[in-house]
């Protein structure tokens, strides 16, 4: 029986592929794409203000609500934060990625690679929590600033409108630091991958032709690292865009996209508006992915 079945499989390789694929594909299409579709449908419903019930009728009014100044502010604020985090992460990630790709011995490289990717898989919520401890008014950063007698500088930064707050953990600066920290590995790995593909001979050639290390860095290494930066930015940008844990735990009371989605679907029960809000990041990310593919970022993943 088993033999006959396997002979049958051998003669019909396409069928086998189809059989193998059917279960995972069915799951992803039905559950995942199906849910995304439900999300899309929901964004065209609306919430009846008086009854607090969702009315299942086609309308664009829910999307219309997104255009209110307060909601546009949420989009702007979130995208600005995502951009700032992406740039900062690229700056922090580069030296480490470059070191791992080009200077570490194979043994060290394995361990550095593990050190970089370990936080990627380890508890996200715990890593956010760590910053609540570190940035709190009586926490480590305040203690360290006090030790250096730099309180005036910290107070000055916290007094800045827009990014300041009563303490680091209650200010957008605190959120920014936590975001940079949380998504940093996503930036390091693609840059490292991109740089590993740069042959050493290319760097030697640059140096032999009289370029200073700074020139080599600027004209050879950075352009070749760029697809890696773009690949990394897909994650840092997208993840910042949709996060609600960090703004909910740190920062002030001004909303970010993720928080808006979270609170509208929660106590307010306004799933249509939450769904419409989610379309923002989805559209931005799809555009971003298409541009990134043009820039060759997927090869660096």
């Amino acid at each position: 029986m088993a033999n006959r079945l396997s002979a049958f499989f051998f003669r019909n390789p396409k069928l086998v592929t189809l059989l193998l694929l059917s279960l995972p594909l069915a799951y992803m299409v039905v559950v995942y794409l199906g849910s995304l579709f439900a999300l899309l449908i929901n964004s065209f419903y609306y919430l009846e203000e008086f009854t607090g019930l969702v009315v299942k009728e086609f309308t664009l009014s829910t999307y219309g609500q997104l255009l209110k100044p307060a909601n546009l502010g949420i989009f702007g604020r979130t995208a600005g934060m995502a951009l700032a985090v992406t740039i900062m992460d690229a700056i922090i990630a580069f030296p480490l990625a470059y070191y791992i790709a080009k200077f570490a011995s194979p043994r060290l490289r394995t361990y550095l690679y593990i050190a970089v990717t370990l936080p990627l898989w380890s508890s996200y919520i715990v890593r956010v929590y760590a910053w609540k401890l570190i940035l709190s008014k009586e926490g480590i950063v305040s203690w360290f600033v006090d030790l250096l007698h730099l309180n005036f500088a910290l107070d000055w930064v916290l007094s800045l409108p827009g990014i300041g707050g009563s303490s680091l953990s209650l200010s957008p600066i605190g959120m920014f630091i936590a975001f940079c920290y949380i998504w940093l590995p996503y930036m390091i790995v693609p840059i490292q991958t991109a740089l590993e593909r740069v042959p050493k001979s290319l760097l030697e050639a640059s140096s032999d032709l009289g370029a200073t290390p700074a020139q080599t860095l600027r004209t050879v290494i950075l352009p070749l690292a760029f697809p890696g930066v773009v690949a990394g930015s897909i994650f840092t940008f997208s993840l910042t865009l949709g996060d609600f844990i960090v703004p909910q735990s740190l920062g002030n009371s001004r909303f970010f996209i993720g928080q808006a989605v979270y609170s509208y679907q929660g106590t307010a029960g306004n799933i249509p508006l939450a769904a419409a809000f989610t379309m923002g990041p989805i559209v931005i990310m799809i555009a971003y992915l298409l541009i990134a593919r043009k820039l060759g970022a997927f090869d660096a993943l």
Binding site: Y32, L36, L239
Partner: peptide, 9 residues
């Protein structure tokens, strides 16, 4: 995609 997309979907 951000986790919130999967979540709210």
């Amino acid at each position: 995609l951000p986790g919130i997309v999967t979540g709210i979907a």
